[in-house]
């Protein structure tokens, strides 16, 4: 009973999201959209090649760090961190599928607000572990991945995923979902699943390249 009351209160508690901003009713989504446009413009401009060349010393430095040393020297440590990366990716994916599945109308007997808020907490922790273990792994093979196009696709999709999760999806699901178009909610859920699936798929493809 108490959880049902909390759920109702949380659903209607959207005053902070409804505050008007100078850049419109969806400031975080607008900023994320602009950031993605800048990223796209950057990808198709001559700046990309210059930046890529300038980043080589950074990747060479990554291999000289303690992470790089451990990753290159102890195969067992590298494989263990890889396993941690996979487990945390699995948990991240589970949280995304659970939360977005609920937004798509699955498991409708479970309380909506508790599911999406609880899943977001799990998602944040899993993302932190994914990024930490990912940085460790990249340090071990930094110069190799530097020359792999699929590594950069993965970084691009990860950036899109993080921007989407925190600047588009989160502000939307924080609102009172009963007044948001169901189509918008479902499209957001589908987009979220597709983005994180792409992140996982490109990551897997690094291993084959």
């Amino acid at each position: 009973m108490s959880s049902a009351t909390n759920s109702t209160n949380n659903l209607s508690n959207n005053s902070s999201s409804d505050r008007q901003s100078p850049i419109g009713p969806y400031p975080r989504a607008t900023i994320a959209g602009l950031a993605l446009l800048v990223l796209l413009a950057f990808s198709f401009s001559g700046l990309r090649a210059e930046t890529w060349t300038a980043l080589l010393p950074f990747f060479e430095w990554m291999e000289t760090t303690w992470f790089g040393y451990v990753g290159k020297t102890w195969g067992g440590a590298f494989a263990t961190i890889q396993a941690g990366h996979l487990v945390s990716l699995g948990v991240l994916g589970g949280a995304v599928l659970f939360s977005d599945g609920r937004l798509l109308g699955l498991y409708s007997s479970l309380p909506l607000r508790e599911v999406i808020d609880g899943s977001h907490q799990v998602f944040k922790w899993a993302l932190a572990v994914v990024v930490f273990t990912g940085v460790f792994m990249a340090c071990g093979v930094a110069v190799k991945v530097y020359y792999l196009p699929v590594f950069w696709y993965k970084m691009l999709t990860l950036t899109v995923g993080v921007l989407f999760a925190f600047y588009v999806r989160k502000p939307l699901i924080d609102r009172d979902l009963s007044v948001v178009s169901p189509l918008v909610v479902k499209l957001t859920a589908v987009a979220s699943i597709m983005v994180w699936f792409t992140v996982a798929a490109t990551g897997r493809w690094i291993g084959f390249s």
């Binding site: 699995g90 599928l97 609880g118 899943s119």
Partner: peptide
């Protein structure tokens, strides 16, 4: 790739259930 990516559906969801049982996640979901 399918074997690994399906971790998100199988292991990811299993771990959510386990974390819920331990009280480490989703404490307000039955």
């Amino acid at each position: 790739s399918t074997h690994v990516i399906t971790l998100m559906l199988s292991l990811g969801i299993l771990f959510l259930i386990d974390l819920r049982m331990l009280g480490w996640a989703l404490p307000n979901v039955p």
